[in-house]
Every structure is written in C-alpha cells, then in structure tokens.
C-alpha cells in the first residue's frame, strides 16, 4: 500500500537501460515495444521492470496439474496477453494470483509485496484488481452504485461510521464525482440511474472495468474482456484498454480472440496444460513451434476438460462426434448463452 499509486493520466518513470531508446519513441506503445525489444523470447523471461514476479506456482485438481508455472514476470506499464487453448489453466492462474483460489505451492510478489496466500480482498487493496470471465455486474444496484462500490478506503463502509452521515458525506461526494468522470469516459453516463441488470453484455463489461478503475489499481487483470461483447463495442473497448496502458497502468488480460491480441498487446505469454510454453511480442510469438503445437495438437490442450466430464467419455463410447468437436460445440453454445461452465470455480472453498 505504501508503494506510489499510479493514477490515471500519470506517466510512469522508466528506470531501465532502454530508457534512452524509449524516450525517443513517439507513442507509449512504441516506447514499451522498445523496452521489451531486448527481452529474451523464452518462457519465464526476465523483464526490465517487472511489477509481478511468480515462482513455482502449482495447482492440481485430483491428479491433474491445472497450473504449473515455474517462473513468470509481467512488465510494468505494458499490456500483456495471456493466451492458450481451452483448459490451459489461464483462468485458474488468474484465480491463484488474485487470491480467489489457493495454490498447492508457489510464491509471487506484486510491486515488491509478497502476495502468496493473501486473501482476495487484500490482493485487490494492494493494487492488483481483476475482472471476471462472466461479467459480475451487480444487477440490482444502479450503475452509479456499482461505481461507488469500487472506491477504496470508504469511511462510511465502517459499521461504526455508517450511521453518521456527516462523517462520510464529503468523501461520498468526491467518489461520486470520480465515478461520473469514469462513466463519461466509458460512455455510460446516460445509464447512471439504471439498474446494472438492465445493461447489455458489452455495457456490463465496460461497467466492470470502470468499477475496477475506481479502486485506483496499479495493475488491472481482465479475464476475457471481449467475450460476449457486441462487435460494435469491441473497438471502443480496445481503445479503453490501450488508454489505460498509455496512462501508465499495467494490464494483463486473458483472451481467445487472436486479432485482438495482435492489435493491442505489447507482450504475449502462451500457456498450455498449465505451463508457460512461450513468450514474445505478438508478431513473433505465433511463429513459435511450441505455440503451434499447443493449439494444433489439440488433444493435449483439451485433456483436462475431457477427463473432468464423463459426458465426453460417454460420447466417445456412443459414437457421437469426436470429443474435441463436441467440446468445441459445447463451449461455443454455452458461451453464446452466457452459461457458466464452471460455477464452482471462483468460489472459495
């Protein structure tokens, strides 16, 4: 908490050797690209200025190693994409880092603070704030209430202050102003008094991101920010994410859409079967044989889900389409319907 807050609009002081090159670069994107240009393109590569460093993070379910990350670093101020086939363990890794799931082993530091074993709400307070694959708009709260909820260190959230409005009136007012600014920026200001439940899927994604920004995070972690978003909104969402980076915030996101990854990310980390198999700039990484193997050697990638679901095992016996085909169809259908495939996943046990 003592680390300096990186507020919107504030640039980040880069201290690395590549400063010279970076300083001459025209846009923030080019600046970051220059900083990352010298980073080795191998799993677990060291970054010039990592905000997040994780070691030996493992999580197994039964006998399956869902996550087995030996070492990874996330560059400060960059947009890093985490990609990989279904069941690669991306969301599980997100859950572990943010305290929503407990690892079997591993430790990680965020901005110099050890966060292993720290509960989710303290992770968020440390400045690492996430969104969810299935948007968690708080339906029966209004849009502005959703935003207000995000503000940190609210005096009126303490039970002993709650009854005495004068104690928190002023802070509440400034939080509302901040929320209104963000709503305007995300073009949600017209929806201000509406229940969040009445928003469209894309608007909910925007609201969730805006709400996360109310906490003044140092790093924002977006789990599939484009899933279920109307294509018309995609471009503006991408723009918002790039703006965050341009203002100095670190962004880590999970995504399936390769076009989007190519378009906005500065660095790409590829996971398969729980391990990190490749790293590199977006243009380079897709040429990596390990990545091609991970995506096209589909069997391995799907094995986790396959074993999880006797349905698929049964299907194989009953000569329906191959497991992969069924799987793909199922995933697509469910995604379209917004069904939570793994309802227990985010629950604390």
């Amino acid at each position: 908490m003592s680390a300096p807050d990186i507020n919107l609009g504030k640039g980040h002081p880069v201290t690395d050797a590549s400063v010279a090159t970076a300083a001459t670069a025209a846009t923030p994107k080019e600046r970051i690209a220059a900083i990352l240009a010298n980073v080795e393109q191998v799993p677990g590569a060291a970054k010039p200025d990592p905000i997040l460093i994780a070691n030996n993070v493992t999580r197994s379910f039964g006998g399956l190693h869902a996550v087995d990350v030996e070492h990874v670093q996330i560059q400060r101020g960059a947009i890093t994409a985490l990609i990989g086939p279904n069941g690669a363990g991306k969301t599980t890794f997100f859950n572990l880092l943010t305290g929503f799931d407990a690892p079997n082993s591993g430790d990680w530091t965020f901005d110099g603070v050890d966060l292993a074993g720290v509960p989710a709400h303290k992770v968020a307070r440390a400045g690492m704030v996430r969104t969810f694959q299935l948007t968690k708009a708080l339906s029966l709260l209004t849009v502005i209430e959703n935003m207000q909820l995000g503000a940190k260190n609210q005096l009126g959230e303490k039970l002993r202050n709650a009854l005495f409005k004068p104690l928190w009136r002023a802070q509440e007012k400034s939080n509302i102003d901040k929320a209104d600014d963000l709503l305007t920026r995300f073009k949600l200001d017209a929806k201000r008094p509406d229940f969040a439940g009445s928003l469209s899927g894309g608007q909910r994604k925007l609201l969730e991101m805006a709400r996360a920004l109310m906490t003044d995070p140092k790093m924002i972690m977006l789990d599939e920010p484009m899933a279920g978003v109307n294509p018309a909104l995609t471009q503006s969402l991408l723009g918002h994410i790039e703006d965050l980076r341009d203002e100095g915030m670190t962004v880590l996101f999970v995504e399936h859409d390769m076009d989007m990854v190519q378009e906005i990310s500065d660095w790409v980390i590829v996971m398969a079967q729980g391990k990190i198999v490749a790293e590199g700039p977006p243009t380079e990484v897709m040429k990596n044989p390990a990545v091609i193997e991970a995506y096209l050697g589909g069997h391995h990638g799907d094995s986790l889900l396959e074993e999880e679901n006797p349905v698929l095992a049964m299907l194989e016996n009953d000569e329906l389409p191959s497991a992969e085909e069924a799987q793909a169809a199922v995933e697509a259908e469910l995604e379209a319907e917004g069904v939570d495939l793994h309802p227990d996943e985010n629950k604390e046990s």
Binding site: E308, N309, P310, V311, L312, A329, V330, L334, V339
Partner: peptide, 16 residues
C-alpha cells in the same frame, strides 16, 4: 450414467 453426467455438469450434458 446420464444421471451422473447431469449431476456433474448439467449445461455440458445438455449440450452433449
């Protein structure tokens, strides 16, 4: 078996 499949994951079973 179908019963167990539905118990395990109704959405997936349905789509299957």
């Amino acid at each position: 078996k179908a019963t167990r499949a539905v118990s395990d994951n109704p959405a997936l079973a349905s789509a299957s």
